[in-house]
Simulated assay, not measured.
Amino acid sequence: MNDEHDFREHAGFWIRLGAVLLDGLIIHIPIAIIFFLITGDINTEWMDTWVYTLLNEAYLTIVPVLWGGYVIGKRICGIRIKRIDGKKLTLLTMILREVIGLYLLSMVTFGISMIVSAIMVGAGKQKRGLHDLIAGTYVARNNY
């Protein structure tokens, strides 16, 4: 990345949090309703299963590669994941970002990496979390 890069393009903490919350509502509430209709139970233990984790990580990893850096929440909020070098997102880039940089790093650090990343996105000039640094990505606002 060169010094001429326009950091105003980078999406900050609140818009990224909004996108994550929207994804949660749009993806998880319908699943919970389907689960309730099938079982008659409002239990959310299904979210603690390896199947749910695998499906969620697959969504967060594969959809941005196929959909130009977007997942549903990011599309609604007008932000998307981009590579710092300007190239197209690849499956390897997204595995580094989502699986290694977010999921596994969070597990190994007992969530501390998530707090550090939130501070970096909220207060840093580049608005990039640890997962972005690992993968060479950032989250861009569409109006730039």
Rank of each mutant, 00 (worst) to 15 (best):
M1Y: 13
M1D: 13
E4L: 13
E4I: 09
H5Q: 12
D6N: 14
D6C: 06
F7C: 06
R8H: 13
E9T: 12
H10G: 03
H10I: 00
H10R: 11
A11I: 01
G12M: 00
F13V: 00
W14A: 13
G18T: 03
G18L: 08
G18P: 01
G18H: 02
D23E: 07
D23K: 04
I29H: 04
I29D: 11
P30N: 03
P30T: 06
I31N: 02
A32Y: 02
I33V: 15
F35M: 14
F36K: 12
F36I: 00
G40P: 03
G40W: 03
G40N: 05
D41V: 05
N43V: 07
E45V: 07
E45Y: 11
T49M: 04
L54S: 15
L55I: 13
A58Y: 02
A58I: 13
Y59W: 08
T61S: 07
I62Q: 05
V63F: 11
P64Q: 08
V65A: 10
V65D: 10
L66Q: 09
W67D: 04
G68P: 02
V71M: 08
G73S: 08
G73N: 06
R75H: 13
I76C: 06
C77A: 15
G78M: 01
G78A: 10
I81R: 04
K82R: 15
D85N: 14
G86H: 09
G86F: 09
L89M: 07
L89H: 09
T90E: 09
L91C: 07
L91R: 04
M94E: 12
L96N: 12
E98V: 14
V99E: 05
I100A: 12
G101R: 06
L102I: 14
L102F: 10
L102M: 13
Y103C: 10
Y103A: 12
Y103V: 14
L104Q: 03
S106E: 03
G111P: 06
G111N: 05
I112P: 07
I112V: 14
M114G: 13
M114K: 10
I119L: 15
I119G: 00
M120R: 00
G122P: 05
A123R: 06
G124F: 07
K125L: 10
Q126S: 12
Q126V: 04
Q126E: 14
K127D: 00
R128H: 04
R128T: 01
H131N: 13
D132K: 02
L133N: 11
L133E: 09
L133I: 12
A135R: 00
T137M: 05
T137N: 10
A140K: 05
R141N: 15
N143H: 14
N143D: 14
Y144R: 08
Y144A: 11
